[in-house]
């Protein structure tokens, strides 16, 4: 690592500014005193009304509850499939497990709007259109490759000594695997759950297609708000909350990753 010339430092600063500007703008917008998208017309009278509304308005609370319910169904779905397959690949180099994980990424190879359209027709055909279960199924399918990618990359980064030692001492594969995961990969488990929940809560492209009036998760509520001029600033407040949650889960994961385990101290 060497000291950079001034021009590179200026370039880095400008790039950082361009990358963060929309996020900062979003945060400022959530402090707007009006309902419109015109924060800059009156930046002096900032207010936290939209944050308050987000927590107390029944419409938003209901949307938030629906989103959390969907996330709580889709995340276990993704984790329960991705975790054993990733462990099989890491511990036994099982190519079938890897092939299934790669197949799960098929959904990412198509443009999102095509996935949305196809998912809508599938859910209509099986009678799950505009239901929590239907949305959770689609979100689970979309979270699965993301969670799998996280598991595969993180499990690869740590040794499997704990697992091999437990097996040598006569532990069953599942018990040895669980001991290894808890000793080495608590941070990865937390990270995968956070990724699953955040992916589901912030998914909008497919959600708008597969929901109508019965199920209104927060992204649908928010984007309808943009077109119907309901309260887009609440959406800004929610977005900032979600970005904050994303950053917090990053820090939590990093903290757990650094914390020495019992295994390390021995």
């Amino acid at each position: 690592m060497t000291r950079m010339p001034l021009i590179s430092q200026v370039l880095s600063f400008c790039l950082a500014l361009v990358l963060t500007a929309p996020l900062v703008l979003l945060a400022l917008l959530s402090l707007s005193p009006t309902t419109g998208l015109d924060f800059f017309s009156d930046p002096i009278h900032a207010s936290i009304d939209w944050w308050h509304q987000l927590l107390f308005e029944p419409q938003w609370l209901s949307a938030l509850t629906t989103s959390l319910l969907i996330a709580s169904l889709s995340t276990p779905f993704a984790v329960v499939i991705a975790l054993p397959l990733s462990c099989r690949w890491r511990l036994y180099r099982d190519k079938v497990a890897l092939a299934i994980l790669i197949a799960s990424a098929t959904v990412l190879l198509f443009p999102p709007v095509v996935v949305a359209l196809s998912a809508t027709r599938l859910l209509q055909a099986v009678g799950l259109f505009d239901t929590v279960l239907g949305v959770a199924f689609v979100h689970g399918l979309m979270s699965l490759p993301v969670v799998a990618l996280l598991f595969v990359s993180r499990l690869e980064a740590r040794p499997i000594g704990t697992f091999e030692a437990a097996r040598a001492l006569g532990a069953l594969p599942i018990a040895a695997g669980a001991a290894w995961l808890l000793a080495e990969h608590r941070a990865t488990l937390v990270g995968a759950i956070a990724v699953g929940v955040l992916t589901s809560m912030s998914e909008a492209t497919v959600t708008i297609f597969v929901t109508d009036t019965a199920v209104r998760p927060v992204t649908r509520e928010a984007l309808s708000g943009l077109t119907q001029d309901m309260s887009p600033t609440s959406f800004a407040a929610f977005s900032v909350w979600l970005l904050g949650a994303g950053m917090a889960s990053l820090f939590l994961e990093k903290f757990l990753h650094r914390r020495p385990t019992n295994h390390d101290s021995h």
Binding site: M1, T2, M4, S8, Q9, S12, L15, A16, L19, T20, P22, L23, L25, L26, L29, L37, D38, F39, A194, V195, L198, T199, S202, E203, A204, T205, T219, A222, L223, L226, P232, F235, A236, S239, L242, L243, A245, G246, M247, S249, L250
Partner: peptide, 30 residues
């Protein structure tokens, strides 16, 4: 080449990746 920028850059793209970038739609509309 530049450590402080690397720290910032990694944090930025992980944060944005964690939260679906659709939330940037609103910021960019403005």
């Amino acid at each position: 080449l530049y450590a402080p920028f690397r720290t910032f850059y990694r944090r930025w793209f992980y944060t944005v990746l964690f939260t679906n970038p659709v939330f940037l739609v609103l910021g960019m509309t403005v």
